[in-house]
């Protein structure tokens, strides 16, 4: 993954703001074709903001940002986005296939009827996420994990060069998680660049080439081995009552009041890399 390829995303000192205060600042990174970048940070750290920024949906207030050498808005044509599906109306009367076909609308425009080729792309996308048996099921009747895969199929149907995933693994069971991990690998094999926000360090280790740690500012960016160190993690999660030891990194889940593990055994490797320091004390707020 070290060969020099054309830059997909080039960000230098970028900040993104909804209002007067920047929601995220100091982002500098070069992301190349076929890279998969995990955005990691606590709730409200700017992960979703960066994804929306890459789509041109959040104003970029300083620095520079090019996606495929263009403005993010212009690059939307070849960018696929998988938002979280929890806000969709479960009663909405569309089938999975109709939802995936929406991925072709940008190409079809308002009036052109889907061609045989469009139909094939849509069926292939559904096949690829393993939901061929559910193509004609009403979208709202699918399970949460299936809905997420369906939305990913919609993104794939647009034949993107860059895919952005917003917390794709939240609340997924093992089957759906494995299916989604396999899909991210497939996308990379096809030379598609993936940027995903996640709470899950294991995901970063398993399928990503790079990691970006965020806490309203960019803490670190680099390959998984370079960036995913205990030192960086402590700085990313400092002040919010995280617990870090060689096996787990946990952050309080504000929405449920429970402690949500954000990484499991995968942090072992991280420990090995830094040598046998033993247990790291958690910075408690």
């Amino acid at each position: 993954m070290n060969q020099v390829g054309p830059d997909v995303i080039h960000i230098a000192g970028a900040a993104f703001s909804y209002g007067a205060q920047p929601a995220l600042e100091g982002v500098t990174a070069t992301i190349e074709r076929g890279d998969a970048v995990a955005l990691i940070g606590p709730n409200g750290s700017g992960k979703s903001t960066l994804l929306k920024g890459l789509l041109g949906l959040v104003p970029q207030t300083s620095g520079s940002l090019r996606v495929f050498g263009n403005t993010p808005r212009a690059a939307r044509r070849i960018t696929g986005f998988m938002p979280q599906t929890d806000e969709l109306d479960p009663q909405f009367p569309v089938s999975l296939r109709q939802v995936v076909m929406m991925g072709r609308y940008r190409r079809l425009g308002a009036l052109r009827w889907p061609s045989k080729a469009d139909q094939r792309v849509v069926d292939a996308a559904i096949e690829r996420v393993g939901l061929a048996a559910h193509a004609h099921t009403r979208f709202g009747e699918l399970s949460g994990g299936q809905q997420q895969r369906g939305i990913l199929a919609r993104a794939i149907a647009a034949e993107p060069q860059l895919v952005l995933l917003d917390e794709p693994f939240n609340g997924l069971d093992k089957t759906n998680r494995d299916a989604l991990l396999g899909l991210v690998r497939d996308l990379r094999d096809d030379g598609i660049t993936v940027v995903t926000s996640t709470h899950d360090l294991q995901l970063a280790r398993d399928v990503c080439s790079h990691v970006m740690l965020l806490n309203r500012t960019m803490v670190a960016y680099g390959t998984v081995d370079e960036a995913l160190t205990l030192d960086h993690l402590e700085r990313t999660f400092s002040g919010i009552g995280v617990e870090i030891d060689e096996h787990t990194v946990a952050t309080p889940d504000h929405s449920h009041g429970a402690t949500e593990p954000i990484a499991s055994p995968g942090v072992d490797a991280l420990h090995d890399e830094r040598g046998p320091h033993g247990s790291h004390g958690a910075p408690r707020a």
């Binding site: 949906l57 609308y105 647009a158």
Partner: peptide, 21 residues
Amino acid sequence: ATARLQLFRAFDLRGYRAAGL
């Protein structure tokens, strides 16, 4: 003339905007 776009927009405004529509 806008039915297809109306459907996408009604179903998922975030996805609709992200698709560049």
